[in-house]
Write a protein that binds this DNA or RNA. Structure first.
Lengths: 202, 202
DNA sequence: TAAGCAAGTAATCAATTACTAACTTAAGAG
DNA sequence: CTCTTAAGTTAGTAATTGATTACTTGCTTA
């Protein structure tokens, strides 16, 4: 409910605001989240939000920064721990799924931003985030080819698209079922098929 | 612009309205499409829309019916023409992609409906549509196992999720690039990997 | 302890939304 | 040609939105 009913520092308040938006996005369409709803969940009046953010879009931008930092950090960590490129791909996949399961609102926010017609700052941030993510995957797949774990003739670009799409598909399933935990069960099964599609034939 | 500037029958007007929404959804976030925008695109005043639909949600419901009928019809046709289960899967995939390429707003509308917190009629229609679609795929994959085209140990459920997710991923890519035609080029390449993941090892 | 400032409130703003209702007008039937 | 009716217009409504403003409260520190 109210993360910090009393008054607290602006920095802390901004952080709580971002987390509140992420939380609300798990419960409703991100594009219908109002500043009143955000403030209400924080135990604050609506006007108070604008003491910390100049505009609503600025809040969304902060959310994007939060997402980018957290997601990329997890991905990086997963890559480092993995003993091989293919193992890294799997670790990244599972890390991403775990992140999404913990914050089901995040993929909705990203997808929603991409849908916006205007060329907003937050939309560009999503594009940049996914682009960077794709480059990481691209690198891993190319490494996998060299280490002969993956098929040398593999279409790297298509593999990246399928990787991201696979996660997107799992998210959609969880939306369909209205059950977030299903995604954790299904993820390994779906990744197994993906893996078969890219790994070197014996 | 204006599909039928003059006055026309209510039936025709309803059809044009639905097509206009689909068209607008290709250009902007579906949840931001207003009745004013719909009417404007049709060369009509906003109030006139409510001569033909009792509410905005009723318009969306009609759109869902339009989508369900068109998509399922294409899928059915693709299945019938295909000589084998695996060929049918590929035909369905390409038919779906072609449909999405022709109507880029459709997947956005579906995804947007799924995100709604309330349990609306149109949301249930989307759930039903995808469920039926999934059942079709399920059947094709099981057939493929029997005909020994697909791996007997294949996880059917996961394969269905991956199939739909693959399309979702391609849609996301086209949103990212802002280019609809890319999806046609990438689809066969991505499906090739999917196919490798499910077909029987030689 | 008093001053200064940052954080929060409450009321209100203009703009936009879906929806309505009294009216006008065009088209087809007799 | 006229009359009826349905399609469309004009001009509203109430509710909701993001944002602003004048005022209040509480913490820090000189």
């Amino acid at each position: 409910m109210d993360a910090q009913t009393k008054r607290c520092s602006a920095e802390k308040r901004r952080a709580v605001t971002v987390e509140t938006v992420v939380q609300l996005a798990a419960e409703q369409n991100p594009s219908t989240i109002t500043t009143t709803a955000i403030a209400g969940r924080m135990g604050l009046t609506q006007g108070a939000l604008f003491r910390h953010f100049p505009t609503k879009d600025a809040i969304i931008e902060s959310v994007m920064e939060w997402v980018a930092a957290r997601l990329l950090s997890r991905v990086e960590k997963a890559v480092k721990k993995a003993p091989s490129p293919l193992a890294a791909l799997e670790a990244v996949f599972m890390a991403h799924i775990e992140f999404v399961a913990q914050h089901p609102g995040v993929p909705r926010i990203l997808f929603g931003e991409l849908q916006r017609a205007e060329d907003t700052a937050s939309k560009r941030m999503v594009q940049k985030l996914i682009h960077r993510y794709g480059e990481q995957l691209h690198g891993l797949i190319e490494e996998g080819k060299k280490s002969r774990e993956l098929d040398a003739d593999l279409d790297t670009e298509a593999s990246v698209i399928l990787f991201i799409g696979t996660i997107q598909g799992l998210v959609m399933q969880s939306l369909l079922a209205g059950n977030v935990n299903r995604i954790r069960r299904e993820a390994p099964r779906v990744f197994a098929i993906y893996q078969r599609g890219i790994r070197r034939e014996k």
